[in-house]
């Protein structure tokens, strides 16, 4: 049998990768988030390698003693995980680019509900009833103060508004 004791160096590498990844995941900018997700995924891939034990011989019957073969399964799983992560990273990057096209930044915006509550707190009108006439989530959210909206719109990249953006604008005027 190959040595199955976990390698301390690799374990520390996993810890550092996942730790930094979590830190980046908590950021607002999508590009930082995706770096964070990639770091965590790489950390998990290393974890998977630890699960397979120490390095051994090639896992081909006849190429050496069976007892010294490396476990091929974790490597196959790591390969699959890398491919999946590649695809998802590409998708999130595209989404970040689209967000930058639309808003001039790639930051994750506030939840509609959060913005409504923030706005109410600002007005000091927390005790008003939820189904008061004239509360429209989309309009209120559009008017609400939001730190991600401070950045001026970058022109020249064709800020194409979607159908819903027009809708909100129309309702406001």
């Amino acid at each position: 049998m190959i040595d199955m004791t976990p390698n301390v160096t690799l374990a520390i590498v996993v810890g550092v990768l996942v730790g930094t990844g979590v830190y980046l995941l908590l950021e607002r900018s999508l590009s930082r988030v995706i770096i964070g997700v990639t770091l965590i995924s790489n950390g998990v891939n290393v974890l998977m390698l630890i699960a397979g034990g120490a390095a051994g011989g090639p896992p081909l019957i006849g190429s050496g003693p069976n007892e010294e073969m490396a476990d091929p399964l974790p490597q196959a799983m790591v390969l699959t995980a890398i491919v999946i992560n590649l695809g998802l990273t590409a998708f999130v990057l595209a989404m970040a680019y689209r967000s930058w096209q639309l808003h001039g930044h790639d930051e994750v915006q506030d939840d509609l509900e959060d913005r409504r509550i923030a706005r109410r707190a600002e007005r000091g009108a927390v005790d008003r009833r939820a189904d008061d006439v004239g509360t429209n989530l989309a309009i209120e959210a559009a008017e609400a103060r939001d730190e991600t909206e401070e950045v001026p719109l970058v022109t020249g990249h064709g800020p194409q508004l979607g159908a819903e953006d027009h809708e909100v604008k129309g309702e406001r005027s």
Binding site: L30, V33, F91, M95, R98, Q109, L161, G162, A163, D165
Partner: peptide
């Protein structure tokens, strides 16, 4: 789908 502002906003939370 369609990549409108509202969907990108909701989508980024869902994706993460």
């Amino acid at each position: 789908l369609g990549g409108t502002g509202e969907r990108i906003r909701a989508g980024s939370i869902y994706v993460i």
